[in-house]
């Protein structure tokens, strides 16, 4: 069988893909990024300031999550919580999985805040809450925002794994279209192009953000 590119099929599949993209891929990416960014920060702060035993337990869980493939985690959560909608499972698993990576980024960011800044907070008798929210986190974020953005892009590119638990995201929508029309090439190619068109400007934006986050203007 010859592989032939058919433009009419390409135009036919485009809306199908875009609907999968906006309704699932983008939604999961945005919500999971928010979860990962917040949970990652909580993990980093707990590991730095909670009592040893708690920090150890959190550290163990984090390592466990990082050392197992996201597909296995998706399937595990899917079969463990059969009554939960797969898209919710997907958002939660992506959020938690990536929170462990973002926690490492935050940790490095927190470590990059010089000891002298902590000393200044002591000399001013600042509360723990203000130390974290007014001094340490803002300074750590400046160092970490680009790396966090890059993880968001990685997560975005991992969303096709959702098809393993039956979520019809963009690629799965394309495969279904392909199955019905016996034409896969157009769907997959255009899905790839959509990924590229979304990731590339985002990475440029992250680069700009990096500059804007510098302290002086």
């Amino acid at each position: 069988m010859n592989v032939v590119w058919e433009w009419d099929k390409a135009f036919e599949v485009l809306p199908v893909l875009l609907s999968g993209f906006f309704q699932v891929t983008l939604l999961v990416t945005v919500l999971s990024t928010v979860i990962a960014a917040v949970l990652g920060l909580v993990i980093a702060i707990v590991r730095r300031s909670a009592p040893r035993p708690i920090g150890r337990v959190v550290g163990f869980v984090v390592d466990f999550i990082r050392m197992t493939p996201i597909v296995v985690q998706l399937l595990f959560a899917y079969y463990a919580f059969l009554n939960v909608s797969p898209i919710v499972i997907g958002i939660a698993v992506f959020g938690i999985h990536y929170s462990t990576y973002m926690a490492e980024v935050y940790r490095a960011g927190i470590d990059s805040v010089p000891e002298s800044q902590w000393e200044a907070t002591t000399a001013l008798s600042m509360s723990r809450y203000r130390i974290w929210t007014a001094v340490v986190v803002p300074q750590a974020l400046r160092a970490t925002a680009p790396a966090l953005g890059n993880y968001a892009i990685s997560m975005f590119k991992d969303t096709p794994f959702l098809l393993t638990i039956g979520v019809v995201e963009m690629v799965q929508a394309g495969l279904i279209f392909g199955g019905n029309n016996f034409k896969y090439l157009e769907a997959i190619t255009i899905a790839g192009v959509i990924f590229l068109l979304a990731s590339y400007p985002t990475s440029l934006l992250i680069g700009r953000l990096e500059k804007r986050l510098a302290f002086s203007n």
Partner: peptide, 22 residues
């Protein structure tokens, strides 16, 4: 010796941080 101002805050924010929050 090295000032240790908070670089993420303005001069004003540096000065009022502790009076307001402490």
């Amino acid at each position: 010796q090295q000032f240790n101002l908070f670089p993420n805050m303005t001069v004003m924010q540096n000065i009022i941080e502790a009076p307001v929050h402490v």
